[in-house]
Design a protein around this nucleic acid. Structure first.
Length: 859
RNA sequence: GGGUGGUUAGCUCAGUGGUAGAGCGCCUCGUUUACACCGAGGAUGUCGGGGGUUCGAAACCCUCACCGCCCA
């Protein structure tokens, strides 16, 4: 298995290794999962990016986390499947192609349905799916042999199957309702495809009727008044009680309409009287149903006034609003007006056009029973939401979900499998079935999220009972941003539980936040603060971007991202590269067993202990989706413990010619480190590890099983002492203005276990262990380093240093004293805490004595 | 209006009862052969305000202020 050992290039250049490594992985088939394997499965399905999409920074985060988990589990011996694919993204994609047509002066109607859809497929084949290539740049270990698209044949069969099943159980129905309508896209929208934001509108009060028999209504939509069927007041409102049941004259169209009483009316709002426009407002629709108010349609699908029989017909709704108010003013019917009146208005999430509530016949999913099951699965713990704090949001939505409007007046998507007979009867056609002769199919298509909701099993071959379904369903973890909890996650729960006999589509939902700019502001094109992940990959490498994103990813929290931080991660990668180069130059090896612990130096025992602790802690953090904390732990181990201390403390030993133990320990530590880091930084770890070991790949190499016997508190304590001495002497040298390169004669006075490492410390500190007449000393507790500065001691600097130490010690002493003099503390604090404070008191007291004596001797 | 998260070093954020942390930035010194994409040292905080619980609070409770997100 061993290849010829290579050498590392003197500088780390990500672009020089990434492409060829990914190629190697694909060719070797490491990412291809085996449904026949006896290993326990671990499955993630990717949140399918839109076919129109490009890799943006949010994808990069989402995918980094998924790849992390997939690679971790693969190394831990699971049959890991990360399934990639794309969503056909109905409205979004249709809009893109329509725009291209518009550039040629064409509309989709010029082509006709069949040709238009053909055109979209062509476009999909040509330029769709760019993102898949971009995923390779990121290093995603997805199984390309299983790539899926929501409009693939078998995924479409899944759509037909579930539609029919829902219909047969009475969970899909057709009804005339007020739905959200986009007058630009000319289609119905579901509730969540509508975004509410504040617009500057107007709020006018209009007098209906005359004299005694008049009432003033308040409205933001004067133009719809011609469709009014009633005026509503609160039943207990004393101002209007006497008028309930009477009629008033509706101006402009001169129709008599009744005054009705309904609890829905808020007497505090406006004048306490509202117009009821049943066909153009969802609340009014509800009231109208209760009171038998007629539905008067006064607008067409384009949002243009139509059918009022007035001069306003043919005007756009917003123009009509102005014209209607002007006319009412002329008639002396405007009592008050407020302009601008800022209030929340719904907009199409795809094109931002103001949504128009519209009475129309659409298909709906009856969600109540499905949503109940989806809520229960989380409530009873079968599905976990991470972090748990986000579960209330899920419940809030699932427990209050309205029926889901699933028909879209589009051409791109899964056509509704409903056929209408000549006598108005309905046939729902499942996969492989045919409608009777003479039937015509419903022209509409299904909401994109209808097919995405089936993703965790349609991608595995369902409705057929494939080997993949058996092996990989239910999937393990779903990783996605909290922003699509409602759009997608909840709907997968609804349909997954329904289709798969109550087996939820995943056992854990891992929600991450959004990536924001370096000041925590939302990224947007208009702000101009959008960053391009590919640019970062080009500049700093995929590993650097991935590490930055992982390091910033606290569960469910948004993260800020700055280019500087990506550069910092690149620096970390370079550090690893150089450390490995150094290790290899000094004979680090992974061959043979680890030396017996008794034969190791405390320095070697210490780093073994640290790497063991780190591996245990880090693994646990990754397994609990704590990516930021895991990254932090591994970063500090690698940079601080390994590079800053272990490598430095080992230089003397490595140069001594008697370094076999250290060479082997160093090899082991790097071996473990590269394994641990591989899920986050796959490229550089693969390169370094294969070079170091001569082995083939880390991708399928087993996750480290560290031995707790290597945990060694004694060595950790001893090395802690060494670190204190080194730091204090460095500080002394710095304060004294001694050049780092200047060698100073010195002598250590310390306990034997510390003295054993005096040459290693001397090497670090540029001290010469020779006979000397000390002119200065650095004291750390009961340890001392005497130095010969040839009489050049800067007394002022030294006094300042000691005085600062004294102040710190005195402060520490005081807090310890206060606690120990506190009767309550002594009586109630746990014994170990009291002991700790007593110890602190003893140490600081000794420090103060020592420093005071030094100061006295210094004048 | 309902729900929910936040307010900790200049910036972005960790830190769920026992002497306040990280990264970046800042200051000083330094080309000691792994690394200047570096090393060493240093400065910087009434942990949003007020009250309470506790021997002890950045952390737990109450309250106020401000910022954000989701839903209406």
């Amino acid at each position: 298995m061993s290849q010829e050992k290579r050498e590392l290039a003197s500088a780390f250049v990500p672009s020089a290794i990434e492409g060829s490594l990914y190629q190697k992985w694909i060719e070797a088939g490491y990412f291809t999962a085996d449904a026949a394997s006896s290993k326990e499965p671990f499955t993630i399905v990717i949140p399918p990016p839109n076919v129109t999409g490009n890799l943006h920074i949010g994808h990069a985060l989402d995918q980094t986390l998924q790849d992390c988990l997939t690679r971790l589990k693969r190394m831990q011996g699971y049959e890991a499947l990360w399934l990639p694919g794309m969503d056909h993204a109905g409205i979004a994609t249709q809009n893109v192609v329509e725009k291209q047509l518009a550039a040629q002066g064409l509309s989709r109607h010029d082509l006709g349905r069949e040709d238009f859809v053909k055109k979209v497929w062509e476009w999909k084949a040509e330029s769709g799916g760019q993102i898949l290539g971009q995923m390779k740049r990121l290093g995603d270990s997805v199984d390309w042999t299983r790539e899926a698209f929501t409009m693939d044949e078998n995924l479409s069969a899944a759509v037909l199957t579930i539609f029919k099943k829902l219909y047969d159980q009475g969970l899909i129905y057709r009804a005339e309702r007020i739905i959200n309508w986009c007058p630009r896209c000319l289609t119905a929208l579901s509730d969540i495809e509508v975004e509410h934001h504040d617009d500057a509108g107007e709020f006018v009060q209009v007098r209906y009727g005359d004299g005694e028999q008049s009432i003033v209504v308040a409205t933001t939509r004067a133009e719809t008044m011609m469709g009014d069927g009633a005026v509503a007041v609160h039943p207990d409102d004393p101002r209007y009680k006497h008028m309930i049941g009477t009629e008033v004259l509706l101006p402009l169209v001169n129709r008599m309409i009744p005054i009705i009483a309904d609890e829905l009316v808020d007497p505090e709002f406006g004048t306490g009287a509202v117009k009821v426009t049943a066909a153009h407002d969802p609340n009014d629709f509800e009231m109208a149903m209760r009171h038998n108010v007629p539905f008067v349609v006064i607008m067409n699908e384009h949002g243009v006034m139509d059918g009022t029989g007035t001069e306003f017909d043919g005007m756009d709704r917003f123009d009509a609003r102005v014209a209607v108010v002007a006319k009412l003013k002329e008639l002396g019917r405007i009592v008050a007006e407020k302009r601008p009146y800022v209030h929340a208005v719904g907009h199409c999430s795809r094109c931002d056009t103001t949504v128009e509530p519209r009475l129309s016949k659409q298909w709906f999913v009856k969600v109540a029973p499905l949503a109940k099951a989806a809520g229960d699965a989380v409530r009873d713990g079968r599905v976990k939401i991470e972090p748990a704090e986000l579960a209330p949001r899920y419940f809030e939505w699932v427990d209050n979900m309205h029926d889901w409007c699933i028909s879209r007046q589009l051409w791109w998507g899964h056509r509704i499998p409903v056929w209408y007979g000549p006598d108005g009867d309905i046939v729902v056609v499942g996969p492989g079935e045919k409608a009777p002769n003479g039937y015509t199919q419903d022209p509409d298509v299904l909401d994109t999220w209808f097919s995405s909701a089936l993703w965790p099993f349609s991608t595995l071959g369902w409705p057929q009972n494939t080997a993949d379904v058996k092996k990989f369903y239910p999937t393990s973890v779903l990783v996605t941003g909290y922003d699509i909890l409602f759009f997608w996650v909840a709907r997968m729960m609804l349909f997954g539980l329904f289709a798969m006999d109550g087996v939820p589509p995943f056992h854990t939902i891992v929600l991450h936040g959004l990536v924001r700019d370096q000041y925590g502001k939302k990224m947007s094109k208009s702000r101009g603060n959008v960053v391009d992940p590919l640019e970062f990959i080009d500049k700093y490498g995929a590993d650097a971007l991935r590490f930055t994103l992982a390091r910033g990813s606290n569960p469910g929290k948004d993260q800020a991202l700055a280019e500087d931080w990506v550069a910092g991660s690149r620096n970390f990668a370079t550090k690893l590269w150089n450390a490995t180069r150094f290790a290899m130059m000094n004979g680090a090896t992974t061959d043979g067993p680890l030396p017996d612990s008794a034969s190791l130096s405390a320095i070697d025992s210490w780093i073994l202990s640290r790497v063991t602790e780190t591996a245990l802690e880090y693994t646990e953090l990754l397994e609990s989706y704590e990516f930021a904390r895991a990254s932090e732990v591994i970063y500090h181990f690698a940079w601080d413990d390994l590079c800053d201390w272990y490598l430095e403390l080992s230089k003397e030993a490595l140069a001594s010619g008697n370094a076999a133990g250290t060479q082997r320990v160093l090899g082991y530590v790097l071996d473990v480190l590269f394994h641990l880091l591989h899920p986050i930084m796959p490229f550089i770890t693969e390169e370094l590890w294969t070079t170091l070991t001569g082995k083939k790949t880390l991708v399928t190499s087993a996750w480290p099983e560290v031995d707790k016997k290597n945990l060694d508190k004694k060595s950790e304590k001893l090395i802690g002492e060494l670190q204190k001495i080194v730091t204090e002497v460095r500080r002394f040298r710095n304060d004294q203005g001694v050049k780092p390169s200047q060698k100073i004669p010195a002598r250590f006075i310390a306990p034997n276990d510390v003295m054993a490492y005096q040459s290693a410390m001397a090497f670090l500190l540029k001290l010469e262990l020779v006979e000397l007449t000390p002119s200065a000393s650095v004291e750390i507790g009961d340890m001392k380093v005497e130095l010969d500065l040839s009489g050049t001691v800067d007394v002022v600097a030294e006094r300042a240093r000691l005085e600062k130490d004294l102040i710190t010690a005195q402060k520490d002493l005081k807090t310890a004293e206060v606690k120990l003099n506190n009767e309550g503390f002594m009586a109630k604090a746990p014994a170990n805490v009291v002991a700790e404070i007593k110890e602190r008191l003893a140490v600081t007291t000794a420090d103060i004595e020592r420093i005071t004596a030094q100061l006295a001797a210094l004048k």
